[in-house]
Simulated assay, not measured.
Amino acid sequence: MAEQHREPQQSTSDAIKSYLPDNGSSTSQVLAVVTLFPVGSFLLILAGLTLAGTLIGLTVATPLFVIFSPIIGPAVLTIALAVAGFLTSGAFGITALSSISWLLNYVRRTRGSLPEQLEHARRRVQDTASHMGQKTREAGQKAQDVMRS
Score class of each variant (00 low, 15 high):
residue 13 S to N: 02
residue 51 L to F: 10
residue 73 G to F: 08
residue 49 L to T: 07
residue 63 P to V: 08
residue 96 A to N: 10
residue 20 L to T: 05
residue 89 S to G: 14
residue 16 I to G: 01
residue 118 L to Q: 08
residue 108 R to S: 13
residue 122 R to Q: 05
residue 6 R to F: 01
residue 112 G to V: 07
residue 63 P to L: 08
residue 135 K to N: 03
residue 139 A to M: 07
residue 2 A to I: 10
residue 95 T to V: 12
residue 91 A to T: 12
residue 5 H to Y: 05
residue 42 F to S: 15
residue 146 V to A: 07
residue 40 G to I: 14
residue 123 R to D: 09
residue 11 S to N: 05
residue 61 A to Y: 02
residue 67 I to Q: 09
residue 94 I to P: 04
residue 71 I to K: 02
residue 2 A to D: 14
residue 58 L to E: 06
residue 144 Q to S: 05
residue 29 Q to I: 05
residue 91 A to L: 11
residue 100 I to M: 15
residue 42 F to E: 10
residue 68 F to M: 06
residue 124 R to M: 14
residue 88 T to I: 02
residue 10 Q to S: 05
residue 144 Q to G: 00
residue 128 T to S: 12
residue 28 S to F: 11
residue 135 K to A: 13
residue 102 W to P: 01
residue 42 F to I: 11
residue 68 F to R: 05
residue 14 D to E: 15
residue 60 V to Y: 07
residue 5 H to G: 00
residue 14 D to N: 04
residue 137 R to H: 09
residue 86 F to W: 07
residue 102 W to V: 15
residue 145 D to Y: 00
residue 63 P to T: 06
residue 118 L to S: 03
residue 47 A to G: 15
residue 88 T to F: 09
residue 88 T to V: 06
residue 41 S to F: 15
residue 51 L to G: 06
residue 57 G to K: 01
residue 118 L to I: 10
residue 83 V to L: 10
residue 101 S to V: 11
residue 81 L to Q: 03
residue 53 G to P: 06
residue 69 S to A: 10
residue 64 L to I: 15
residue 135 K to P: 00
residue 148 R to V: 00
residue 108 R to W: 08
residue 57 G to D: 09
